[in-house]
Design a protein around this nucleic acid. Structure first.
Lengths: 192, 192
DNA sequence: CGTTCAGTTGACTAAGGTCAATTCCCGTGG
DNA sequence: CCACGGGAATTGACCTTAGTCAACTGAACG
């Protein structure tokens, strides 16, 4: 397990094994049960999680109480509230664990401590921000250039495993549509 | 002019005047005429611009040649292709100058040189990434939580100056709708 | 066997997309 | 000074699709 993790992190951040080990030393692994809610009401969600295996959805509620599944995350994806992580603002995010899930957590203060000791970790932190930006940008492009139907097809192509693992209602929310709409889209696609 | 610029940058990045001056030393100011196109076809757009005064729209084209106004930027906003800036990937971005515009440019290699010399500038670079992420996230929230009509109202409230400066067709594209739709929305809003 | 909840379906509404025609605005040239 | 041309904006007619609400189905679980 830990070996795969080390190799993966080495590759993602293109950093030497020594650094990965240093990082893992200040991380913790937690397991979450299915349907567990990971929330920090009124506080900052001060950590980033890396899903070793499992699935979760990250969602935000607006002032009218409507919720939107901001992300559907599976193996190898990141969970947390990166906006809160960098600004320290209290988090409106909620994370719902959808499958038995094992998560590698990095606390913000641990990262800060690393940065104090070794400037390498500032590069690492910048990489995190870069990656967060790029994935948000990708999501924006998706929303601008594709219809809900095309977005669904893209999702099937990109993460087929999500379809079996994650209830439709969260997929529809992720796509920015209602469950009946997704149902009709599926009918259009598969019935022909 | 330069005073205002220094004060503004000091505030945005909360950095000492000395650092701002150091930064400005490696920046260049360029003026663009109305309707000018700022493109680097097939190359990376290797610089970030800060609009001292003027207006521009940043847009991307998808594979079908449809274009989307990714951003409408005015005084104090940033122009460029931040994704290309950090990844070095060739840029599909096009920037159209909408008014006589003065831009402060920072070249990527200048920033890299600064970072080599003084680790402070790595903090600065991370701040840039953080800000890019946060504004992309804000845009996502806007798209998820609001209808086109509400987005238009939000835009009026947030940047009323845009309405007079920028042609409707770019505003509609920014909102993710067609010009006729924006026209009808305006009718709904103002006719009553 | 009944409860519960996710998913689907039907009926209807609302709103944006598309295409084409028209109007408006503005700058240019006669 | 006025007429014309061209692009932007608006409008109308029609289509498509998502939203809404409610009813129904089906599977999971006790």
């Amino acid at each position: 397990m830990s070996n795969i993790l080390i190799e993966t992190l080495k590759e993602i951040f293109s950093m030497p094994q020594r650094k990965v080990e240093e990082l893992l030393k200040v991380c913790t692994i937690e397991t979450h049960a299915k349907n567990e809610m990971v929330v920090t009401k009124g506080k900052t969600f001060n950590r980033l999680g890396y899903i070793i295996h499992g699935a979760a959805r990250i969602y935000y509620s607006n002032e009218r109480g409507e919720e939107v599944s901001y992300l559907l995350q599976v193996n190898g994806d990141v969970i947390g509230d990166y906006a809160g992580f960098i600004t320290g603002a209290a988090s409106e995010v909620k994370i719902e664990i959808l499958l038995p899930t094992e998560v590698l957590y990095l606390e913000k203060n641990q990262l800060d401590t690393l940065i104090q000791k070794d400037i390498f970790w500032l590069f690492f932190a910048k990489q995190l921000s870069d990656m967060a930006f790029l994935s948000a940008k990708q999501r924006l492009d998706e929303l601008f250039f594709y219809t809900p139907e095309q977005r669904y097809l893209n999702l099937i192509k990109k993460s087929p495993e999500i379809l079996n693992k994650i209830p439709q209602k969260y997929i529809s929310s992720y796509l920015g549509i209602t469950p009946p709409s997704l149902s009709r889209i599926r009918k259009r696609i598969f019935d022909i």
